[in-house]
Design a protein around this nucleic acid. Sequence first.
DNA 1: AATGAAAATGATAATTGTTTTCATATAGAT
DNA 2: ATCTATATGAAAACAATTATCATTTTCATT
Lengths: 151, 151
Amino acid sequence: MKNKCWWHDKFYNFGARMTSTRRTIIDILHSTREHLSVEDIFKKVHEMNPSTGLTTVYRTLDLLEQMGMAQKYIFGDGKARYELAINRKGKGYHHHLVCVKCKTIIDYSDFTNNEIELFKATKTKLLKKYNFKIVNHVTYFYGLCGKCQNL
Amino acid sequence: MKNKCWWHDKFYNFGARMTSTRRTIIDILHSTREHLSVEDIFKKVHEMNPSTGLTTVYRTLDLLEQMGMAQKYIFGDGKARYELAINRKGKGYHHHLVCVKCKTIIDYSDFTNNEIELFKATKTKLLKKYNFKIVNHVTYFYGLCGKCQNL
DNA sequence: AATGAAAATGATAATTGTTTTCATATAGAT
DNA sequence: ATCTATATGAAAACAATTATCATTTTCATT
Ligand SMILES: [Mn+2]
Ligand SMILES: [Mn+2]
Ligand SMILES: [Zn+2]
Ligand SMILES: [Zn+2]
């Protein structure tokens, strides 16, 4: 692994090394808008380098999550799914709409000011009332996507 | 199983029968404020009737969820947890605060009018914008409980 | 460029939570 | 009391994830 890239330092500061498999996985996550399962990612890695083991994919995703570079989701189909926390388009924090029928996942990030305000208020309230310090929150909206409503 | 109870009809309408194990499990869920794992529930059932199998506990919880009597949660420790949807104290829909350190789970149900209003608005917005029909939503607040903040 | 210690990897086995299977037992309508 | 659909328990199967350990790779130091 010769040439550096922007995340080299991130890894270094975390006491981790940059390897080609890790870079491949980051690239894969970068290049999709989907919420890939570990198996999905493994298959894609395998196309580039068939000698890579599934274990390494698990370990890398775990690392990325700990570094705050990736988000892990458990939508309810029994397998973890991952997404870059900060992607190329700067898409940051967002929620998810999960179709209970076809399992499609839609990102929902266009929050209204009202929604943003409210979260801040809730944060304050929970700290006061329950002495609970929120570091993040996750919301899943379950329902029916357009297609599935007409079946 | 002789005497009827209030949920007898609920079962009947669902084409399900009332059995002593099912009643035991409902009682267990009724008598706690915790979010019990399947294993937790199995242990308690086992105290009352050691011949009950774990499979039946799984099956019963599944049934209760399908009937809308229980809620299943996956908080992130890899095991499902259950809670009665409508309990004796009439506690209904609520969110959860999950301490990332000690894994304590706190119920959070005292929503402000503002919060309730906003959810309705969001529901409408999502239907309009994504043509997505929400049937329910789940929010997990992750953070540090009072105790764990001072460690 | 060669060296060496720390970190990463892959193959395999082990673990864990959950589901399936199937023969037997039970609920509850008749 | 009888009968049939439903529920059950034991065991095996399953699927996702994690642990183990010998080998390879990274990268700071020579
Ligand atoms: Mn997303
Ligand atoms: Mn709860
Ligand atoms: Zn759908
Ligand atoms: Zn805590």
